[in-house]
Nucleic acid binder design. Structure first.
Lengths: 222, 222
DNA sequence: CTGTCCATGGGTGGCAACCCGTATTTTTGG
DNA sequence: CCAAAAATACGGGTTGCCACCCATGGACAG
C-alpha cells in the first residue's frame, strides 16, 4: 500500500515540526515537503504533487484563501486540509468554496488532523465538530421558512401590496404608475408602512422583505 | 470510566443482533435494551434512559421520524443516531431538525456506527460521508458561490473598497467620513462603479453585491 | 351619528442620490 | 520619461426619498 504524500504549509516552524512528527509516525503517511508561506506552498505543490496539503490560512504574504484557490487551480489532484485558529463562519464558507475539503481548528484534538487527511484523501469532507455544527445549523436554517413575524400582517392589504412593490425595487413613480394612483398616495403608504414596521428607508424595506421571506435573493442571480 | 449506555431500535432482528455484537464488543459501550418498533423504543428510552439510541427509521407503526421527536421530547438527555437505508436529502433534514445528531447509512462501513455513537455522546454531529457531502453542498449553495463574474474585478481597488461600503448600506457621507475624502469624491467613484457594472442605483449595487457573494443576506436576519 | 381606520391626494421643504462636466495630482506602465 | 489611468476634488443641476403638514370620502363599529 502506497503512503499518502503530504505537504505541510504553515508559517510557524513549531507547528510544522509538530505536524511532521505526528504524520511521520503514521504508517500510511509521508511528509514530502514543508512550506513557510503561500507561495512556497504553491511551488512545492507543483513540483511534488502531494496527495494532501495541510494549509494554515493565517500565513503572511499570499493569504491562505488565495493559496487554496491557486493550488487547486495548479494541482487539482491535490486535496487540501485547512488548518486554522479561528472558526469564523464566513471563512469556512470561502475556504470550502475555494476548494478545500477539510477545515480543522488548531484547538481540535490532533486526531482530527489525521482523520481529516484520510478523509480528504478519499475525496470526502472533514470538518471539526464545532464547524460541523455550524454548517449543519446553516443547512437547517437555509431550508426553514420564515414564520412571518408579527408586523407584516398588521399592514392593510393595500399597504402589503405596496410593500411588495417597494421591496422588489420599484420607485415611487413606477408603483404609482402600475397602481394608477398618485405618487403622493404611494409615498404616503410607504411612509405609513415604514412607521408601522419601524424601518428607516427603502433599503431597510428590502432587507425586511428578504428576512420574512417575501423576497428571495436567489432571484437576483442574473 | 463509565460505559456509553446504548439502546438499539430496529425492526429487523438480524440487524439488532449484529449491532449488539458489534457494540457489545467495544470496551466503552454497553447495550441496555432492544426495541422492535417506535413505541417500544420510546418506552425503553423512558425506563432505561440510555445515553444513545440507535434508531432505524424504516420501522412500521410509529414512523422513525415521529419516534425521534417523541424520544427527544421525553428524554432530552438521550442522543439519537439515525440508521437508515436511504440517503434521501429531505429525510436528512427532517431527521436532524427533529433532534437526531447522527445520520448513518446502512451501507456505510460499520466503523461509522461506532464513530457516530461516540460523536453524539459528546454532543457532536456525525454524518455519513455521502450525506456530509450533500449537506456541505447545500450549505455552499445556500450561500451562493459566485465566480465573481467579469465586472467586479474590472473595478480599481479604490472602487472595490467603495463598492463594498455602499453595498453594506453606508451613505455617501458616511463613506466619505470613513475614508477621509470628500463626499463628492465618493459620489464620483460610486457613479463610475455604477457605470462600469451597469447598475442604476444603490439598491442595484446591494443586489449585485449579494449576487457575487460580497454581501450575505443571512446577515440581515435580526 | 360620530369616531376611527383606510385610501386617496395635495403642499412644502430638507437632503441624499444621481448626472454632467472640469481639473489637479499621483500612480503606473510602456 | 511621457502618456494613460486612477484618485482626488469642485460646481451645478435634476430627480427621488422622506418627513412633516393638511383635507376628503367611504366603510364600519359602537
Amino acid at each position: 500500500m502506497t503512503k499518502i504524500r503530504i505537504l505541510i504549509a504553515d508559517d510557524h516552524a513549531v507547528v510544522r515540526s509538530g505536524l511532521k512528527q505526528l504524520l511521520g509516525a503514521q504508517p500510511d503517511m509521508e511528509v514530502v515537503g514543508e512550506a513557510g508561506d503561500g507561495l512556497e506552498a504553491l511551488g512545492l505543490a507543483k513540483s511534488q504533487k502531494p496527495d494532501v496539503i495541510i494549509l494554515d490560512i493565517g500565513m503572511p504574504g499570499v493569504s491562505g484563501l488565495e493559496a487554496v484557490s491557486l493550488i487547486k487551480e495548479a494541482v487539482p489532484s491535490c486535496q487540501i486540509v485547512v488548518l486554522t485558529m479561528h472558526g469564523k463562519e464566513s471563512f469556512v464558507r470561502q475556504v470550502l468554496s475555494a476548494g478545500a475539503l477539510a477545515y480543522v481548528l488548531k484547538a481540535s484534538p490532533v486526531s482530527d488532523v489525521l482523520e481529516a487527511v484520510k478523509a480528504v484523501h478519499r475525496g470526502e469532507y472533514f470538518l471539526s465538530s464545532k464547524i460541523e455544527a455550524e454548517v449543519v445549523g446553516a443547512y437547517l436554517d437555509s431550508r426553514k421558512q420564515a414564520p412571518t413575524p408579527r408586523g407584516y400582517d398588521l399592514l392593510s392589504e393595500r399597504e402589503q401590496q405596496i410593500f411588495r412593490l417597494v421591496a422588489e425595487g420599484n420607485s415611487t413613480n413606477q408603483i404609482a404608475d402600475v397602481l394608477c394612483v398618485s405618487p403622493k398616495t404611494v409615498e404616503k403608504h410607504r411612509t405609513n408602512i415604514m412607521k408601522k414596521l419601524n424601518l428607516k428607508d427603502r433599503l431597510d424595506m428590502v432587507k425586511y422583505a428578504v428576512k420574512i421571506g417575501i423576497i428571495d435573493p436567489q432571484l437576483w442571480q442574473d
